[in-house]
Nucleic acid binder design. Structure first.
Lengths: 175, 175
DNA sequence: CGTGGCTAGTCGATCAATCAACCGAGAAAT
DNA sequence: ATTTCTCGGTTGATTGATCGACTAGCCACG
């Protein structure tokens, strides 16, 4: 459901092939959503079936045909409608917390290792996000669209920072 | 997969029925994982099939029979093994970020409303976590198991706090 | 001359999650 | 007297996500 909306959102910016959508997911969307290739193509099929998008096949000389997907008026309406529906609380699932919750089955060193491994993984993610952030800055602040896109990245950054601080506190006070 | 592990973790603390497992999920686990009733029962069936748990039926006078599930030695081994496997980065999916990313399709007021609704939802969650936190405190810090369980709750609290701060920043700088 | 990467997509299988309905009994509340 | 709550569990259907394999031509590198 949400994948369909994200795809509609991207198509609202510009017509695209499934392949290009996948690239966007892997670059700009990756900090809050990821999508499987197969799932993108299947969702595109459904969007076309539902009249939210149309396909235009474009021949290319040196590359395979492009199945360019365009958002329709109906699709645009659905997109705006979704944006306006109620915000419902959503508890993300955190596999690491699942582990830590039961980590007392390990000895102290085991727990320390777990926390340290998480710290490294978190720092890597944060570094990645920070370098993405550098590529946008400044010119972004002006128009609302760019501001919001940057803001979602800032959200991920703040969460990773909070995670790091929490990890330090855990490492420090672990009995 | 992770659900199976969480269930094993709970069973390692004490034998339980599916019904009781569901209650634990709804109370202590709810801040980082939630589980559907049907899924819990199906996973229990699989745990028994795989030899990670056993069932004992206990007759009761005024209540239905209890299908008490006990963790086996193999189950305990699987649990510890899982705790020791590599920590892999995991990007949680955030439906709200999905919306905000494309919220420029709305007018400014629309975006402000969206952010405000999120703020209310976040504050509610935070209040819930904080009241859960009050019920544990103090005596917890001592042994490692209680410490870790409290720590996962602290993690959720820190993330909600970070979310609130970010929301304030967004509301303040939104062009 | 071969290998690997980029473009662009398709198909099948499997699993996990979610929703909704249904069963039945006792106990407490109105 | 009747509804609602708690206990305890089951089934079916559907959707979404995930993984892997397969097709196929072009380009650049060594």
């Amino acid at each position: 459901m949400i994948l369909a909306r994200l795809i509609l959102g991207l198509l609202s910016l510009s017509p695209m092939t499934g392949y290009e959508l996948k690239k966007h997911f892997d670059s700009s969307i990756n900090h809050f959503w990821n999508a499987d290739k197969a799932q993108i193509y299947r969702t595109l099929t459904k969007l076309v079936q539902d009249g939210h998008a149309t396909v235009t096949v474009i021949r290319q000389s040196n590359y395979p045909d492009r199945q360019e997907h365009h958002i329709t008026e109906l699709g645009r309406e659905m997109l705006v409608q979704w944006l306006q529906t109620d915000v419902t609380a959503h508890i993300p699932r955190e596999p690491f917390m699942a582990r830590l919750f039961f980590a007392a089955e390990l000895d102290r060193t085991g727990v320390v290792d777990l926390v340290e491994a998480r710290r490294v993984a978190t720092q890597d993610l944060l570094d990645d996000y920070l370098s993405q952030r550098e590529d946008i800055d400044m010119r972004a602040a002006a128009d609302r669209r760019s501001f919001l896109m940057a803001a979602t990245l800032d959200n991920s950054i703040r969460h990773q920072e909070a995670e790091l601080q929490w990890l330090e506190a855990v490492a420090e006070h672990l009995p």
